[in-house]
Nucleic acid binder design. Structure first.
Length: 282
DNA sequence: AAGTGGACCTGCTAGC
DNA sequence: TGCTAGCAGGTCCACT
């Protein structure tokens, strides 16, 4: 579920409420992608700080307080199917609830059927294991210093498709399968084009499209394909605005109304890519 | 070195 | 109705 907008919407939906809370208990369910890396008891009594986001990760700082707890933080990732909820009451844990941080302000709960998500303790963001997990991440899409020239430079000479290059997230983070498809549509670029063949102006346009798509998704609370909800339990609405994602065989909203041009689906790097063969050019 | 494919794990849906 | 194949929002790792 979670690409940058979903992660950010989730973060915003609980950050204020958990800030300053005291960790009272920790419940660990089935194993997630990586081990927690700390004995849950070590966290008890720690004070929670302001949750931040880097790429699709959420960093929840913890501080030793009143002689209890441990300095560091939890790095959370929602994987493919994860979501976080924050509620003042602690409902019984369901089969897919694999981590509860029970605090004086409420319970932060990770629900993740496929368990590709993770909750990893780290002594600091810039120390392992967090630093190692974040090391390969590209720039934040809304970093004002990031320009199309950065994409152009990073992709020079590379043969991977621009769609896969976006998904790789080592130049610019945040666009997953849905938003990469949507951004390429908005920019009018064929997703199969080798990224090294993109002209500088098209890199500018692509970055602008990535930003526009992510910004819009943030505005409407992200995409809820199956069951994404923010920590309040509210779903997003971007799925109603997708122009290509999941629309294989349907008419292109831009050119297909009169001409009957249909959205196509191809597989790139074992992921579905949706595009308009007319609007998106090589 | 860059590029490709497999791995992780579970649930849902379309099709027979 | 019941089974199976195929698909799903991510990303790390091993191999060529």
């Amino acid at each position: 579920m979670p690409e940058l907008p979903e992660v950010e919407v989730t973060r915003q939906s609980f950050a204020d409420r958990i800030d300053g809370a005291r960790v009272e208990a920790v419940r660990v369910g089935k194993p997630l992608r990586w081990p927690l890396g700390v004995a849950p008891a070590e966290l008890l009594g720690a004070e929670v700080g302001a949750a931040s986001r880097r790429g699709k990760y959420i960093w929840l700082p913890l501080r030793r307080a009143a002689g209890r707890g441990i300095d560091g933080g939890l790095l959370l990732h929602l994987g493919m199917s994860g979501s976080l909820s924050f509620s003042s009451t602690s409902a019984p844990a369901g089969v897919h609830d694999h981590f509860d941080l029970i605090t004086s302000s409420g319970v932060l709960r990770l629900t993740d059927p496929r368990r590709f998500g993770a909750v990893v303790w780290s002594p600091a963001l810039d120390q392992p294991p967090a630093s190692r997990l974040l090391a390969a991440l590209g720039r934040e899409p809304f970093d004002p210093a990031l320009t199309g020239a950065d994409l152009h430079t990073a992709w020079r000479g590379k043969r991977v498709s621009v769609k896969q290059a976006l998904l790789a997230g080592d130049v610019v983070v945040g666009a997953g399968n849905i938003y990469a498809c949507e951004a390429l549509f908005m920019a009018g670029i064929d997703p199969r084009l080798p990224c090294g063949r993109l002209s500088r102006p098209r890199c500018d346009r692509l970055l602008e499209a990535v930003r526009a798509v992510l910004r819009r998704a943030l505005e409407v609370g992200g995409t809820s394909l199956r069951n994404f909800k923010d920590a309040h339990g509210d779903p997003g609405a971007f799925q109603f605005e997708a122009k290509v994602y999941g629309r294989e065989g349907q008419s292109c909203t831009t050119c297909g109304v009169a001409s009957g041009v249909k959205i196509r689906r191809v597989v790139q790097g074992q992921r579905s890519t949706f595009f308009c063969p007319v609007c998106q050019r090589r």
